[in-house]
Design a protein around this nucleic acid. Structure first.
Lengths: 338, 338
DNA sequence: TTGAAAGCGCTAACAG
DNA sequence: CTGTTAGCGCTTTCAA
């Protein structure tokens, strides 16, 4: 079974025209039932499969969605991807994935590979470098090519497209309030994401809550994980800290470890909350209380928005969905006092 | 900028033929330099991008690889994916990902979406259900369509295609030996993957090492994580266990937790080694000693094999690469005695 | 009810 | 050096 069977082959074998075969296989009422059956049987016995590429060229629709994520090693994105894949499959779309690895260059290249007609629309979360340097020309370009696009989680204000974000500000606000009620008001915010939109929003939410509590915020902007060990360690020695809110999951775990190394116990001396509800939080010891972002919902919502846009079911104006967060209580925080 | 610019458009604007434009843009020496430049300038100013679909139809090559993985929430697969993406990108290929979610049905559907010409080859790891029920017709089918295919990690003996697997047997053997030297010879094997090939191989390796040590193996086949808490807990109460080898990372962490709940300390009373080197092992407390499978290498190797096959650079016979494992020592095991 | 023909956007053999 | 033509596999209008 070397070359694939085509309509032409089938037509020749039955001595009918190509268009008859095409119509028959597509159940066109134009074709009489007997010939329709005959053609279908032959097609089946030849394992005929319509060539998707040719169909796409004709229909100008690929039924595939391009997805660009900054990293495949961050569980949040995988959960979103999971939601994207499930929803896309349900609606008859495939997904093609590119990784930007947080760089502008790869993000731009990915956009370029999508612009050439291989996808019907794009879902993406902006790379860290792009957000920091605020380079937006490549997005502008894909919009110019009238390729529908939806951004999730890490978005750019300057780009006018559908967006799905997390209510990070409110999430941090709620978490801070939660900590103040269960642990005390000496709450530190550990920000490993100050360069990107979500990090800034989380910081704002924290500060808002602290202002509300009439406390001065204590923010630690530490870019890499090694800096946390040093930076956080020395703060813990100097001031009384009763709770830590971390901008991501890994730094929350690290914070727990650093606190313990400094002789504090979790959650009795210090409570810890992290962002993102990943497996790692569940399996940590103690398990980590987190602000969950409903990653899967974000994925499916993004797909919904995009497909509506592709199929022209959306309003002309860009839609910005904001998904609420939820605190998932585990053992790194004290229980709420009744 | 509504409709995309095509060769036809450019040709009309300059009043030349379509093929001249095509050749000029492809830097054909057939076209004189001045016209070549003129055409290129126009193309650039019109933001011309060649239509990939049309090119694919013509060339019968899509420069994309289809990838089917059982789950995107298992870090091992993400690391492999990372390797796949990097290598594929390097070699000018895109990847399109389908998730089988461990089910035969979704795996079969994914194969079907790939068969219709949208990819040049397939890389996959077999779904758990498929391995358990040993259904192989869909793989046979894609092979019949002469779609190159390479299987990684979870493979099927009955399918004749290139394969990249981990030397799981040797990895478990090495780990068991390591434990016997550092912790003692009362070693338990916790198998959560007995239904799939890798789980069986790891068990064999463990048993081989135990036989070598002249000890009776203690194997705990526990399908789900909840069963571990009960099952492992009662064994720890009844017998003297000095070390635990777990078939995956999560059960290793759980084993640590269960051991501690039963009053044992890690690694002083019980040493623990898990399979797979994920972030979760690094961030655990204590950090977990693991058998690393070089996931990224597996990914890039699989891509290499596949592209060679696609581009007909391979020998006719199927190639089976076996990647060696490496023990990464952390704090859940005692140091080797000098 | 069936078929011929055009065309999606591109490439390439062949003519001029 | 440039253009004509055919064709990749499919859909679809229009004619028979």
């Amino acid at each position: 079974m070397a070359a694939k069977t085509t309509l032409k082959d089938l037509a020749k074998m039955l001595d009918v025209s190509i268009s008859t075969v095409s119509k028959a296989l597509n159940d066109s009422p134009e074709i009489s039932l007997p010939t329709r059956i005959k053609i279908k049987e032959l097609a089946a016995s030849c394992n005929y499969v319509p060539n998707n590429i040719a169909q796409s060229l004709k229909s100008k629709s690929t039924k595939t969605i391009g997805v660009i994520i900054p990293s495949i090693l961050i569980e949040f994105f995988n959960k979103v991807l999971y939601g994207i894949e499930a929803e896309a499959t349900k609606r008859g779309y495939k997904i093609i994935i590119c990784l930007s690895n947080e760089t502008f260059k790869k993000e731009q290249e990915s956009i370029d590979t999508f612009i050439n007609g291989s996808v019907d629309g794009i879902i993406l979360s902006v790379a860290e470098e792009t957000q920091k340097t605020n380079q937006i020309s490549h997005f502008q370009k894909s919009l110019n090519y009238s390729l529908p696009m939806v951004m999730f989680d890490r978005v750019l204000d300057d780009i006018d497209c559908d967006k799905v974000t997390v209510d990070d500000l409110e999430g941090a606000y709620k978490a801070t309030k939660f900590l103040s009620k269960t642990a005390g008001q000496n709450i530190l915010f550990l920000n490993t994401l100050s360069g990107i939109s979500v990090g800034r929003l989380r910081e704002q939410g924290y500060k808002k809550a602290m202002a509300n509590l009439k406390r001065t915020p204590i923010v630690l902007n530490l870019e890499n994980y090694k800096a946390i060990e040093k930076g956080l360690g020395s703060v813990l020695k100097e001031q009384k800290i009763e709770a830590i809110l971390a901008a991501d999951e890994y730094s929350a775990l690290l914070a727990m470890n650093v606190a313990r190394l400094n002789g504090f116990s979790i959650p009795d001396d210090i409570s810890v909350i992290g962002f993102t509800n990943g497996l790692i939080s569940e399996y940590a010891m103690p398990s980590l209380t987190v602000v969950s972002q409903h990653a899967e919902n974000i994925g499916s919502l993004a797909v919904d928005r995009l497909i509506n846009r592709i199929e022209k079911k959306s309003t002309p104006d860009a839609i910005h969905d904001v998904v609420k967060t939820k605190i998932i209580e585990r053992n790194s925080t004290k229980k709420i006092k009744k």
